[in-house]
């Protein structure tokens, strides 16, 4: 890579500095276009209502109280806690179940393994949106016959997401690359599959597991259509649904809406900024999923 960029800026290209300036300008305009929507949202979340509805570039003074009002009056505290609980259960389930399944596909021999893996892969593109209807019927039915209600309760919001073909595929590819020698050595020491998994495979697999955590966190936190269907009270409503309700109820208080939007996206943005490298690499990995 380095040699390639070096050859591009070779002496014979030097005279055309103008072109570089034009490129900088075009790229800057593009960069600003990408950031402006975010800037306006954050700026408005610190404004008074009057400022927010009268197009201002900067708030007169930073009104932190918007966040307090949204957090308390608009029930964002409740939605936020709900989302934290739902996301924690979902991510834990995905990591646990996907690790086990991926290990079975990568390291164990059993009948019908190839068939089962192909079957799983062939469904990797099916979006949850086209399965909403039957799944909704299923969770209402499970609630009727089971000991606890599924609708407007944690099971409907978490369990259906715990079978993640993408995560299984990603982890399987990584587990399969762990040298066989390590497994044979562990076997001689008397370790079974379970101990090999916990003491050798997992410590080596921090990076792909982190990728699975990041992507399932973002997916779970951002989910809208399904939680919209299976919640009907504030008890379990996640923040994405809370935000849409808030928009419908509070059409006038734009500054509070923006504060709500900022609260909603903050955890995802924090994850993104702290795991940037992992995030970008994870996207590249997801590119291989098909």
């Amino acid at each position: 890579m380095a040699s390639m960029t070096a050859s591009q800026s070779s002496p014979r290209r030097k005279p055309i500095k103008w072109w570089n300036i034009i490129v900088y300008i075009i790229l800057s305009v593009g960069g600003i276009a990408m950031v402006l929507p975010m800037y306006w949202t954050i700026a408005a979340s610190f404004m008074t209502r009057a400022e927010a509805i009268a197009f201002r570039w900067f708030p007169g003074q930073l009104r932190y109280e918007n966040f307090i009002v949204a957090w308390e009056q608009a029930q964002f505290s409740e939605y936020f806690v709900n989302s934290v609980i739902i996301t924690t259960i979902t991510v834990t389930g995905i990591v646990l179940f996907s690790t086990l399944a991926a290990y079975a596909f990568a390291r164990m021999e059993f009948k019908g393994k190839d068939f089962l893996f192909s079957l799983l892969l062939s469904t990797i593109f099916i979006p949850e949106m086209v399965l909403l209807l039957p799944n909704f019927l299923t969770v209402t039915w499970l609630g009727r016959i089971g000991p606890i209600s599924w609708v407007d309760n944690w099971p409907a919001l978490t369990i259906p997401f715990m079978g993640s073909v993408f995560s299984i595929f990603l982890l399987r590819q990584f587990f399969a690359q762990i040298p066989r020698d390590l497994f044979d050595a562990a076997k001689i020491d008397g370790a079974g599959h379970f101990r090999f998994l916990t003491s050798v495979v997992l410590p080596l697999s921090r990076a792909p597991i982190m990728t699975v955590i990041i992507f399932s966190f973002i997916g779970s936190w951002n989910a809208l259509a399904w939680p919209l269907l299976v919640t009907n009270s504030a008890d379990w409503r996640p923040i994405a649904v809370g935000l849409t309700n808030f928009l419908d109820e509070e059409q006038q208080r734009i500054h509070l809406q923006m504060a709500g939007a900022v609260i909603t996206m903050l955890p995802v943005l924090l994850i993104y900024f702290f795991t940037q490298k992992q995030f970008t690499e994870g996207i590249a990995l997801s590119g291989l999923k098909g």
């Binding site: 990408m34 951002n222 909603t264 993104y272 996207i283």
Partner: peptide
Amino acid sequence: PFALSPAV
């Protein structure tokens, strides 16, 4: 922006 939900 890719990390944002379509809703946000």
